[in-house]
């Protein structure tokens, strides 16, 4: 069981959370061309290793969190709020 250290609730089992999405992407401007939006919605990396993702503490405080997780080992090395960045921590 992966364990996620929710900044509000403390360390909890991952079954309390639901996976949201890739947190490394930034949405294009609202008036950006369709191609850019198409890229944003459909094209994403599938890294074997460190990845930054959004998780929702659905069965806890319901906060959306940013999580740095190794997709290969499932190690979770950092958890923060959506506007925070793991680099800032280290």
């Amino acid at each position: 069981m992966m364990r996620i250290n929710c900044p509000y609730c403390g360390e909890r089992e991952h079954s309390e959370f639901t996976y949201g999405e890739d947190a490394t992407r930034t949405a294009p401007d609202n008036d950006a061309p369709m191609e850019e939006w198409n890229k944003f919605v459909y094209e994403r990396d599938n890294p074997a290793g460190e990845h930054i993702e959004y998780w929702h503490h659905a069965f806890g405080c319901r906060a959306w969190l940013k999580v740095q997780r190794n997709t290969f080992t499932h190690d979770i090395s950092w958890v923060g709020l959506p506007h925070e960045h793991p680099e800032a921590e280290s």
Partner: peptide, 13 residues
């Protein structure tokens, strides 16, 4: 509900 929360916390804080 989860989607609206996501929009507010991630997209449009």
């Amino acid at each position: 509900m989860a989607y609206l929360e996501r929009c507010l916390e991630i997209d449009w804080p």
